Every structure is written in structure tokens, then in C-alpha cells.
Simulated assay, not measured.
Amino acid sequence: MSADEKGDFISNNHQVQPIQNSLLPIQHNPNDALPSSSNPRRNPRNMQGLLKFLLETTKNEDGTHDSEFSPMDEERKEFLMNVFESMSVNIAEKLTESLKVISQAVNITQQDDPSDCENALEVLTDLVDEVDVANDFMKIGGLQACKPCLYSPHNGIRWRAAQLVGECAQNNPLFQHNAVQLTFLDDLIKLVDTDTDERVRVKALYAISTIMRGNEKAINFFHDIDACHTLMRALQSDSDRLKIKVAFLLSTAFSGDQFLKIQLQKMGFITLLVQLIMEALEGKKITSLEHLLGALISLSKDLPDALEDCRQPNLNFLNILDNIIQTYKDDSACLETVSYASSIKQMVYSYTDVINADR
């Protein structure tokens, strides 16, 4: 991060650079009726609705003949102006308003209604899907305001705050850097390890994944063995959603760090993944199966000791892989799963090993 960027972030003069008005992504309801003579006009709620309205109002025009043009009447002009005004929003204003609301999270007790703060977090999450907006949110103190939200007595605030951090960090090196500097990984890993709400733990893992992606300093955080133990406990939990998130993290963030892969192998991650793959196969949990296989490939590649772990006789892993391939080879929805299983089989078992195993 440049000195100028650091100055912008640390400065107490939290001013957002001017931002152009933008359209809010509002989900379109297919049941919304179009204006007609028998149905009162209803403003389209997004660009698709506006396009549908315009097509409907011009459907009687015949493109093969000359069109008749006439000045727009005042009623239609007013209607279209109202549509565009209702669909646009001042992002800087929304950021500031919502930030003020979530900044009060530290004062919200278990007995208080959390809905205002939850709604503000959702508004912010919708706005920060663009990197520039996420960075503007950070520059006006958004990261500092999110911290207390992660420790709120209301799980609805905690998981929404974790989700907001994850959205901001998505493909955003500047935000990732500052999240690491402000020790967000410590906060998030604690949520994964100790929170009683599954959704909070899943969203915390999501935020960790986006902060770590392509961020060497964030990956180094997991050189601390305690953080790795948290991931192992999450893999051993009863939550399939949590297992999938951990597997995704292992397959995307850790694959390029040989030191970390060796550490995870010594901790028993390879053996655990094989056992979980067997359980997912038996339970026909195809989504879990795919992600667990992907994680195993990433951690075992170019690591002889990991391949040796897979070949432990008591795991009977070759038969498990063959079972996966045979079970799902004709299922078009499971092509990735079969591909992963085939790749692992080729990677782990040489021709000689397969012959000896068959004997």
C-alpha cells in the first residue's frame, strides 16, 4: 500500500471522494404487473422492468412501416422521470447513513431490537460489490465500525458484519491489507471456533477466504498452528456447510504455500479428508464430496508424505475412489466430482501400486 493510501486510510478526515449516482440492484418480481388501461401504472423496480415496460408500450408499432413521432405528453414524461429517480441512489450518502447506524452496534444489548443495524449492514453489502465503493467505505471508517458488530450479542448482526467484510475483501488487495493490519483474521477465526450460530461461523470462514486470496501476509497468519487447529475442528463439526467452507479455503488459499501444506499434513489433515470423503460418499452428500476431493488434491499435490497418507491400508482409499467414479460417472451433474476422483487416483496410485492393491 502506498504512503498516500495509508494516509487516506489512517486520516481522521474521513471524506469520501465524489461518487456518481448508480442504480441499486433490486430483485425483479416477475409478478409485477405492467401499466395498462385496466391496471394502474406501477413503477418498474429495475432496468429489466423498465425495458419490459418500454417494450410493452411500443408493441403495437410495426417496424415495416414509417413510425409516427409525436411529442411526449406530460403524463408520460412525469412517469418516466419518477421511474429514473426511484431507481437511482446517491451511494456516498447511503454509505454515510448506514455507517452511522452500524457504528452504534457497540451500544446494542441483547434486549435491544437489532433490525436497524441488520438492515444497514445489508444495504452496505449491496453497495460494496464494486472495489471503489468498498474502498470508500473503508476510508470513512467502515472497517473500524465493523469490528464491534462481530462481537454483538445478536447473531444477525454478527453474520451480516462478517459477510460485509467478506464482500469488501473480494479481489480487493487494499482492503485485504488493512483487514489484516486491523487483526480481523483473529476476530474471524475466533468466530469460526467458538460461535454457537452456524451461519456466523460459515460467514466468518467466507470472510477469511476472501481476505486470504492472493494475500501472502494473510496466508502467513495460518502458519500459527492454533489457527490450523481451528480449521481442523471445523472439519470435524456436524455442519456440512462449515466443512464445505473449510474445504474451499484449503483448496484455494493454501495450495501454493508448501510450508503450510507440510504443516497441515503433519497435523493429520490428509487422513481426516480421506475419512470425510468416505462419509460424504456413504451419505450421498455430493456437494461436500466435490469440495473435499478438491481440497485433498490441493494439499497432496507435490507432497510425497501426503500421498503416502492416502495409501494407508486401513483407509482403503483406492476402493473409495473407484466407488465414487463408478457411482457418478453417468451423472452429468457430478462431472467435477468424477474428474477429481480420477485425478487423485492417478496422483496417489502408480500402476504398480494398483496391481499390488488388487492382489
Rank of each mutant, 00 (worst) to 15 (best):
R160F: 03
N107I: 07
L164V: 09
S152K: 09
L121Y: 05
D132G: 10
V131A: 10
K139M: 13
L143R: 10
P114I: 04
Q176W: 09
D112N: 00
Q176M: 10
Q163H: 14
C149M: 08
S103D: 06
C146M: 13
I102D: 07
I140P: 11
D116P: 00
Q110F: 13
I102R: 06
D132H: 12
G141R: 01
V165R: 02
S115H: 12
D113S: 02
L121K: 06
N107R: 12
G156D: 08
P148Y: 03
R158Y: 04
M138Q: 11
N171A: 13
N172G: 10
Q163P: 01
N172D: 09
E118H: 04
V101Y: 03
I140W: 10
F137D: 01
P148V: 03
E122F: 07
D126C: 12
D112V: 00
N119D: 04
S152H: 07
M138K: 14
Q111W: 00
A162S: 11
D129L: 03
A162N: 04
H177S: 13
V131S: 11
F137E: 04
G156E: 08
N107Q: 09
Y151T: 14
C146K: 01
A145E: 06
V106E: 12
A169T: 03
A105T: 12
L143T: 08
R160G: 03
S152Y: 06
M138C: 13
Q176E: 10
P148R: 06
A120K: 09
M138P: 13
V123R: 12
P173D: 03
D129S: 02
N135D: 14
N155C: 04
Q104C: 08
D136C: 13
I108S: 02
P173R: 01
V131R: 13
L174W: 07
V101G: 00
H177T: 15
G166I: 06
P148S: 03
Q111P: 05
I108C: 05
P114S: 03
D126L: 14
D129N: 06
A120P: 02
F137N: 08
I102G: 05
N107P: 01
Q144R: 07
C149D: 11
Q111H: 06
L121V: 01
C146E: 09
V133S: 06
V165A: 09
V123D: 15
N135K: 14
D132P: 04
L121Q: 01
I140T: 14
L124K: 02
L127C: 11
V123T: 15
H177M: 11
L127Q: 08
N119F: 02
L124I: 00
V165I: 15
V133C: 07
Q104M: 13
C117S: 12
R158K: 08
L121R: 00
S152F: 05
F175D: 14
L174H: 12
V131P: 06
Q144C: 06
P114V: 00
V106F: 05
N107T: 12
P148G: 02
V106I: 02
E130T: 07
V131E: 14
I108W: 00
